[in-house]
Amino acid sequence: MSQTVTPIPTSWVGPLRLSGEVTGEQEVPLATYETPLWPSVGRSARVSRLVDDGIRVTIVDERMTRSSLFVARTAADAVAAGSALTARFDDLAAIVAAQSRFARLIDVHTEVVGNLLFVRFALTTGDASGHNMTTLAAETFIDHVLAWHPELEYGSISGNYCSDKKATAVNGILGRGRSAVAEILIPAAVVADQLRSSAQRIADLNVRKNLVGSTIAGALRSANAHYANMLLAFYLATGQDAANIVEASQGITYAEVRGEGDLYFSCTLPNLIVGTVGNGKDLPFVDEVLTRLGCREERSSGGNARRLAALIAATVLCGELSLLAAQTNHKELMASHLVLERKAGGRR
């Protein structure tokens, strides 16, 4: 098997002014072929520096999940086994703690379909995204569960109720990864001067495009313009598993007019699956980037990953705000793309 390195244009954008989980100003890296993303995110980063608190990010929750599948003879057997398992939470938690310095069991959720028993384990995993950590824990759980319940048979170590790299409702409801909310309150004059729009126009467009438009399209727990753009660029720059943008891009943009035309704008991202240790994080360029982001500091378990998640959420807000503001003005989006891509040497 031969390996090659694929170059991806990368630029540091900002700085963003931040408060909440992260305070101060921080530039962020975006690796993308969609180079107009850099000035677009940069425009809202400039807006954040004109606001006292900048972008405030709150980490709501953090966990990684794996759902194992067991096969019972009947639905009644599956329900009884599921109830018995949830009652043995302390035993399951002790199993996790004995095999890992960082993994801790925080939740067990069961679902029964016919004679199939799905058991969804949720763990905190320190600074790791936790894919392998939870899979190892699930593998150990399976051995114990089958010993405790000989009436069950092994189905699969992963039963898709996790749910990994798929757009599902369960992750938003029960949680998977870091859940973050980024928000900003922008004075009316700044909205007009920097975004060439108004709070009312942006709020109206958000309802009509992101909420109504996404609903008639059949979006699943998602109402945003383009979270995936910023997520992929940030994931590639920091050594993340890029396939996780499938669920990470499920999020909701919210906007409202406050006071005398000020704009409250927020992005809620319930499924940010990121880590600062683990596979890919030891690559020289990734280590350099994470160091520059302040994600190689001595912090409590999970602190560096929470910082990274907060920076990503703030970056998503910047890109989302800039795009929506541009789309309130007829022809601005395409005109901007043409100018920026021609400057970069693109041909159209």
Rank of each mutant, 00 (worst) to 15 (best):
S2Y: 15
P7V: 10
I8S: 05
S11I: 10
P15F: 05
R17E: 03
V22L: 05
E25D: 09
V28D: 01
L30E: 05
Y33T: 13
Y33R: 11
E34C: 09
A45H: 07
S48K: 07
G54Q: 06
S68H: 05
A72L: 00
A78V: 03
A84V: 09
T86G: 02
D91R: 15
A97D: 15
S100D: 12
V113F: 05
G114Y: 06
A122I: 04
A122D: 06
A122H: 06
L123R: 02
N132F: 05
A137P: 00
A138F: 07
A147V: 06
S158T: 11
N160A: 13
T168F: 12
A169D: 11
G172P: 01
G172W: 02
G175S: 09
V190A: 10
Q194T: 06
R196V: 08
Q200D: 14
L205F: 02
L211D: 04
I216W: 11
G218V: 06
A219E: 15
Y227N: 12
T238Y: 08
T238L: 10
G239V: 03
A248N: 09
Q250N: 14
Q250P: 12
A255E: 00
E260T: 11
G261H: 01
Y264H: 12
C267Q: 11
P270C: 13
P270N: 11
P270H: 08
N271R: 08
G275E: 02
T276E: 10
V277Q: 11
L283H: 10
L283G: 00
R292S: 12
G294P: 07
G294H: 13
R296W: 07
E298V: 07
E298F: 02
L308K: 12
I312F: 02
A314R: 02
T315R: 05
A325M: 07
E341C: 13
K343P: 13
R348I: 05
